[in-house]
């Protein structure tokens, strides 16, 4: 799920449930999720598998 849509959905759900004090915490969570998704160790189908790169280096 794209992060913008997810952020909107969780904020709307918190409001619907009357949990307005949760919203600042959810803002922090969204920032943390962005950090997580931008980390350079995330795998991607259009790049070499980092696990295999590490294994290949180890067998040199």
């Amino acid at each position: 799920m794209r992060i913008e849509a997810w952020a909107q959905a969780i904020t709307a759900d918190a409001k619907l449930r009357g949990l307005f004090q949760l919203i600042p915490l959810l803002n922090g969570l969204v920032q943390a999720t962005q950090t997580l998704r931008l980390a350079d160790w995330n795998e991607s189908a259009d790049q070499d598998d980092q696990e295999n790169v590490i294994a290949a280096k180890g067998s040199d």
């Binding site: 969780i10 759900d13 949990l19 004090q21 997580l36 160790w41």
Partner: peptide, 25 residues
């Protein structure tokens, strides 16, 4: 207690894909 309830409620919103990213991290 209100503070603990709110932190627990945050856990409902974590997507499986992000939990797995975190496990990789």
């Amino acid at each position: 207690t209100p503070g603990v309830r709110l932190r627990l409620e945050m856990g409902r919103y974590i997507l499986a894909e992000d939990y797995l990213r975190a496990q990789h991290g």
